[in-house]
Design a protein around this nucleic acid. Structure first.
Ligand SMILES: [Mn+2]
Ligand SMILES: [Mn+2]
Ligand SMILES: [Zn+2]
Ligand SMILES: [Zn+2]
Lengths: 139, 139
DNA sequence: CTGGCTTTGCAACCAAGTTGCAAAGGTTTT
DNA sequence: AAAACCTTTGCAACTTGGTTGCAAAGCCAG
């Protein structure tokens, strides 16, 4: 496992360090998205600045993407393989559960094409849905 | 004009004060959404705390709504008449221009219904599109 | 006009995120 | 295996956006 994580870092052109390894492991083990605070809680000892910089590096390298949330908090989730340095292709719907607070990437739900009036050029469409997730309805 | 603004405040059950009047006038005069910083710049003398509290009151009373943005900045725009205290119905698409930075409510573009897997309960769907607005393509 | 409730301004506080820099760590070369 | 070189980390200090408590000022119904 550690080795797989190291390979993944190298594949994305990052040197293998303790914080990157640990934080990437957290993403691989997590079902949903992670916020800076989650990572600070789940690790012990890494400086918060290091966590900020690690997350930014992961975004830059195309390993994770940020998720726009209705409450303007910043969350991060693993990208699919198609993403790479400077080219993100995370065109899926995001879901935020009002009950458990988790945020999920609905990878197989593609964002619908929205048709805008004459003159508007669409570059990116973000869809964030909130409600109750499937875990929470089952209880 | 001042009088119309005062009426609008009263209709939404707010007392008429200088800051509320001025800030509401700004919204009525503005094409797009306003951020806290815009209001601070366009007014002179109101304490920033007053502006925060005024905006929050407007949201609470159903006069303006906040707009989820891809860059996690907070913007506010006037609601349509249907919104009221505790019941917002701003189910339209929002557009953010990468060029001029303006944010617009596309009131007549309704958010599409997204179909989610079994077990998910949808409460709200936010769609925010970014690209180039019609003003900026014309230049 | 008066009195009671609401709003404002100020100061202090808090949380999230950024920056500069020296020390420590990873990687490549020899 | 060590040296040299470049990258990353931790710390402290700072910035920005937002909140809170409270006394003074302002609104508005009676
Ligand atoms: Mn995602
Ligand atoms: Mn709107
Ligand atoms: Zn849930
Ligand atoms: Zn524009």
């Amino acid at each position: 496992m550690q080795e797989k994580v190291a390979q993944l870092l190298k594949k994305n052109q990052m040197s293998v360090t303790a914080s990157r390894t640990k934080i990437l492991e957290l993403f691989l083990a997590s079902q949903g998205a992670l916020a800076h605070a989650d990572i600070e809680r789940l690790t012990n000892g890494f400086d918060r600045v290091t966590i900020y910089r690690t997350l930014q590096t992961f975004v830059d390298k195309g390993l994770v993407h940020t998720i726009p949330t209705a409450d303007n908090s910043v969350r991060y989730a693993l990208c699919k393989d198609e993403c790479s340095q400077g080219h993100h292709h995370d065109d899926h719907v995001h879901f935020m559960c009002d009950d458990c607070g988790n945020t999920y990437c609905l990878d197989h739900i593609h964002v619908p094409a929205v048709h805008l009036p004459q003159g508007f050029v669409v570059k990116q469409t973000d869809v964030v849905v909130s409600g109750i997730c499937s875990n929470c309805t089952l209880r």
